[in-house]
């Protein structure tokens, strides 16, 4: 597997934009891949990128985007599944990295947008703004295919590798404090039914 920028760190990673990266990710999804978005701006930007039937938008349960995506990946091993979440969210559920590593679903990729802040509540700092490195935590938990995105092109390349190869994988992008491009419509049952239609599981 080609790692174009194998030695990227949080310090050397370019400062990217979540809205732009979400659109770049979604543009590369051609095979009805499932995308599970955690709460807050992660979720809003996925919504704003176009309401694909295979998108699931959490409305609470902070930290559970990765476990939900793991469940989808186990149920549908032939479908690629992406979990999108923020640094504040994954910091609440770091054990999920170990669970994913131990379960080793080939079809699961976790994408973390790291802006070092709880942006939606007033940009209070998270632990990633000081000492915690999400990629290092994930590797320590056993998720070996974990990388920082060096820039937009490298992010695209990492997504392409995830689509073509086996997981589980983690892609972490250092992002700015840009506002999301929209707001998710908060109708839980509609969200679930659309998602299940998209996955072909609605009875």
């Amino acid at each position: 597997m080609s790692n174009i920028e194998p030695n990227v760190t949080r310090e050397t990673a370019a400062l990217l934009n979540r809205t732009a990266l979400t659109r770049r990710l979604v543009a590369r999804l051609k095979a009805e891949e499932a995308v599970v978005a955690g709460i807050g701006h992660t979720n809003f930007d996925l919504w704003a990128s176009g309401q694909r039937p295979q998108n699931f938008y959490m409305l609470g349960s902070m930290g559970l985007a990765t476990p939900i995506a793991l469940g989808v990946a186990i149920a549908q091993p032939q479908r690629k599944v992406f979990a999108l979440d923020g640094d504040g969210s994954i910091l609440m559920q770091l054990g999920a990295f170990g669970t994913v590593a131990a379960t080793a679903p080939k079809n699961l990729t976790i994408v973390i947008w790291d802006n070092g802040a709880y942006h939606i509540t007033g940009a209070q700092k998270t632990l990633t703004s000081t000492t915690t490195d999400i990629v290092a935590v994930a590797k320590g938990a056993g998720l070996q295919q974990a990388q920082w995105a060096a820039d937009e092109e490298h992010f695209d390349a990492l997504v392409d590798e995830a689509l073509a190869g086996d997981g589980p994988r983690l892609i972490v992008a250092k992002i700015d404090h840009g506002k999301p491009a929209g707001v998710t419509e908060r109708d839980p049952v509609k969200i679930r039914l659309n998602f299940m239609n998209g996955l072909g599981t609605r009875a």
Binding site: L64, I68, G71, A73, A75, L199
Partner: peptide
């Protein structure tokens, strides 16, 4: 809870 929820939606 998350895993069982995701699996349910996945069938």
């Amino acid at each position: 809870v998350g895993i069982v929820t995701g699996a349910y939606m996945g069938g």
